[in-house]
Every structure is written in C-alpha cells, then in structure tokens.
Simulated scan of single mutants.
Amino acid sequence: MPDIMFVLPVRGGSGGAHSVMQEVTALRNIGINARVLVNEQNVASFKAVYSRFEWTKEGVISFSGPRHLGEIAKNADVVVATTNTSVHSVAEAIRETKAKFRTAYYVQDYEPLFYEAGTINHRLAVSSFGILQNCTYFAKTRWLCDIVHATHGHDVRRVVPSIDHSIYFPCRPDLAEVPVVTAMIRPPTPRRAPRRTAALLARITSGEFGPMRVRAFGASQEDLHEHGLVLPDMVEVAGILNQTDVSELLRETDFFIDLSDYQAFGRTAAEAMACGAITIAPVLGGASDFIDNGINSFLVNTGNPTEITATLNRMFSMSDKEKNTMRYAAMEAVAGYTPVRAAISELHALGFI
C-alpha cells in the first residue's frame, strides 16, 4: 500500500486542516499508510484540536525542521505539501537530505492573495509554485485549478471535497417559527470581511428583514473589541468553536451567511448546507461548484451592497414550501462530498489507481 505523508505546519482548526484530517482518516480506513507531519511548535495544539481522531497518537508526527522532515519522510512514496510554507520546507528537506520521494502540493487556497504584493510573504507564496520539481498539483475546486494554471502554467488535478457527515447532518424536521440566521465573523482576516458581516448583522437585528434570531461565531467578544468591532446586543456571540460545536450550531440554523471577499472552497457554507441550512456565499471562488444560485442556495457579489440586499430580501421572503424545497436541494448538493470519495480521488490524482 502507498505510504503518503501530508506536511501540515499549522495549529489546527482551519478549513484546510479539517480537509486534510478528514481525508487522511479516510485513507487510513481504506488501508493506506497516510500520516500527517506537523512542525514541533504547533504539534501540541494540533493534536488537541483533533483529539477526536484516535489515530493522531501514532499518525501525527512532529518534525523540528526541514532536515528532520526529510529524514522522517525518506521512505515515503509521496510527500504532500498543503501550504506555501510547507512547500518550502519540503524543497529544503530534499536539498539537505537528498531524499528521493515524490512531491505533491494539495492547493487549499491561492495563498498569494493572503499578502500584500511585494512583501516577503507574498514572494514566498508565489515562489511556492515553482520550486518542487515534477510536482503533482491537486485542488478541490475549479476556481483553484484555473487560477493556478492561469498564473503558473501547472496542470492541477481536481479532487473531491470532503465534509465530515458524521457531525454535519440535518436533524431538525421543521423550520423554526422565528428564523435563525448564523454568520461566521473572523476579525483578524480581512478577506473574510468582518466589518461587512458585522454591518449586515446589525441590519438584520434592526428588523429590516423581519423578526430573526441572529448568531455569530468565530470570535469572542474580546476579539471583536480588540479589532474595533461592535455587534448589537441582540446578536448571540457563540465565540470560537471546535468542529463539533460548529456542527451543533449549524444544525439549528435556517440561513447561513458568508460575505467573504472570496472563498477558495466555501467549507462552512457547504457544511451548513449539509445540516439543512440555506446559504449565501460569495460568487468569487469555489462555492459555485456546489451552489446553483437560487436553486439550492445563493451566490452573491459580496462587494455589491445592492446585490446583497436584493438577495437577502429574496431569501427571507420565500414561502415555507420554497424554503423546504431549497433546503432539500442544498443537502443533496453536498451529500456526495464524503471523505472516502475525497480520499479515492486523491489516490487517482497521485497516480496510485
């Protein structure tokens, strides 16, 4: 069986890390020797975040630097980078240890967009697409495949996204008498448009669209205050949640709103749909892979306030019959995003089957 190592030097908790952990779990369950390499600064946090996966005790391995990474991975069939920094670590590991393993880059987002052009971090993110020889690139959305091909000339293999349906599932047969609106707000991340989101939540709680119960997660009150964001008292701030808590919140949600500038995939929107929520997501990015606008949820140009308002009016004015029809279509749209399908698609992308 193939020996695959994913290099994931993060604390855990991001959508990309969730993807890798779900898919490595599925790979291991079908007999693949798949493991995750985490840098020693983050490994304790990472294991704590993903403690619900029992295999992390032996399957998450700490590395102290590129040379150590190369020594750990020297017998792997393929080493998969998952962030731009991990690409550089893998490249340096090969240089320092002369390791012969194949390389791949699981492109979770187009990371040059994270940084201001001309900065060191931006240059590192751009160069990550040119330093691994004979690298296999794969990504989960057409948007990511297209942007990498257009910008860097690489053919990018498209794989199936994954949702953990063991925790993201519908469990409420009826719509709430007072609709529940949920949004994620992340103050430190400008591309997630926290101020735009906060302003919209204020409009919703004002009664502009009718009576609503409004909830937000992704930041504590202290985080909001630190970044100069004030939410109305009527917004229930759930704070920073783990995956299980997010799933419980989404199962009680009628409408989920993501006003990010773009989403490379749109994980939380897809997870909300899996829980039976109708979703608004940005038209820019990967959400169009699973959202058929106006049929199973809504896509919106999040930079256009008039379009946002029109979409909200349309969504909130639907009849119960229309809402239920859309809810069922939303659940159906993402039902095939299983970790096993994702894992098998990655084996195809890597040439093992």
Rank of each mutant, 00 (worst) to 15 (best):
C135N: 11
C135F: 08
A139R: 14
R123K: 14
G130V: 13
R123S: 11
L124R: 07
L144R: 07
W143N: 05
H149W: 08
Q133N: 13
S127V: 11
Y137A: 04
G153K: 01
L144F: 06
A125M: 01
T141E: 00
H122I: 06
A139D: 12
H152N: 10
A139E: 11
R157C: 00
Q133R: 15
T136G: 04
H154T: 15
I147F: 05
T151G: 04
H149N: 11
V126C: 03
W143A: 07
G130T: 14
K140T: 08
K140S: 10
K140E: 10
A125S: 02
S127D: 13
G153C: 01
I120V: 14
R157F: 02
L144P: 09
V159Y: 00
A125F: 02
G130W: 10
H149C: 07
T151D: 12
I131V: 15
I147M: 03
H149V: 07
Y137T: 12
S127M: 12
V156F: 03
K140H: 11
R142E: 10
S128Y: 06
L124N: 03
V148M: 04
S128E: 04
H122Q: 06
S128R: 05
S127I: 09
T151L: 07
C135Q: 09
V126G: 02
S127G: 12
R123V: 12
N121A: 10
Q133E: 14
H149E: 08
V159W: 00
Q133F: 12
T151P: 09
Y137V: 11
I147H: 04
R158L: 07
H154N: 12
H154E: 11
R158P: 07
A139T: 15
I131W: 13
V159A: 00
T136P: 08
